[in-house]
Design a binder for these strands. Structure first.
Lengths: 162, 162
DNA sequence: TATTGTTATACTCTATAACTATA
DNA sequence: TATAGTTATAGAGTATAACAATA
């Protein structure tokens, strides 16, 4: 439609995408000291999707494998995950959450909930659900062009028995 | 309402807030080589809100003044803004976009529009407008608790005559 | 020869603290 | 004495390229 209006909308969205980092930093402020956001993301995804290889994790995080490798090492050093042999491929190892990792994840969820409850006290459940839907769609719109259908192919959500 | 459901929503939102960085990086990929995202933000805000001091800019960007100072220096070195004496306060200087800065901003808007048009080709104008509204509200919900009513007090939008 | 993962290097962004200059 | 801004230092996150091991 009105190309002029669309252009302004795009620029506004660009501004918001830049500014959203501040929101993230604010939320992360309450995280445990030795658990930087990237480690939290590793733990969260490993819980949500179950045991996986580095390559898949890097696609889920949408960052380079080299970076993912370092994040995973950090998490492993703290005993929150273990690397097990991959029976299907000797080059890979499977990442698996440990008991301690699960407990750390609980603390993280606690901190997250507390922070978001505070900031979003005047949002209804429906407001938050709608925002989540739009952000999900946004990520898909961007991700599809780069890592075709990786976020869709399988979503165990059940394999996360620790 | 259902506290359990709300908690899951919060955790999902936390995941999205972490993941949104990938969206931002993807968008930024098309930016001019010598114009990192932070410089783009400086230019954009200076255009939108008009000439201002470092302190105000740092509040708009929601980052520490020391960081803002460095970003501004980077932008100034490229001739995209100038610092003018502040008649009201000898400690401050007013940041003003230059002609070259405006041209750089045009190139940025071009790149942004092109990227977003590509990624969001199946979004309607209304979809994007709704997303913008929610992100705006999200920032307010987080920002209000830290820098009370700074985003609201004045929004010239007209002072941006370069 | 191609793929999986790791390591080395460099760049961007951010915060804290110490400092200078002006109010 | 307090405030606006700058600089030094450190830490987190990311990408690219070179490398090792396995497919």
């Amino acid at each position: 439609m009105a190309a002029r209006a669309a252009r302004r909308s795009y620029e506004e969205l660009a501004r918001h995408l830049s500014g959203i980092g501040a929101v993230r930093r604010e939320m992360v402020r309450g995280f445990p000291q030795d658990c930087p956001p990237a480690s939290a993301a590793v733990l969260t995804l490993l819980h949500k999707y179950g045991e996986m290889r580095i390559g898949r994790l890097s696609e889920l995080m949408a960052i380079d494998m080299s970076v993912t490798s370092r994040h995973v090492s950090h998490v492993e050093e703290r005993g929150w995950l273990e690397r097990h042999a991959d029976p299907q491929d000797g080059r890979s190892r499977l990442l698996r959450l440990t008991e301690r990792g699960s407990r750390q994840l609980d603390r993280l969820a606690e901190a997250t909930t507390e922070a978001l409850e505070g900031f979003l006290h005047d949002w209804t459940d429906e407001d938050i659900a709608r925002l989540n839907e739009m952000l999900e769609r946004l990520r898909e719109s961007f991700g599809d062009s780069r890592a075709p259908r990786l976020l869709h192919e399988d979503t165990p959500e059940t394999t996360a028995r620790h």
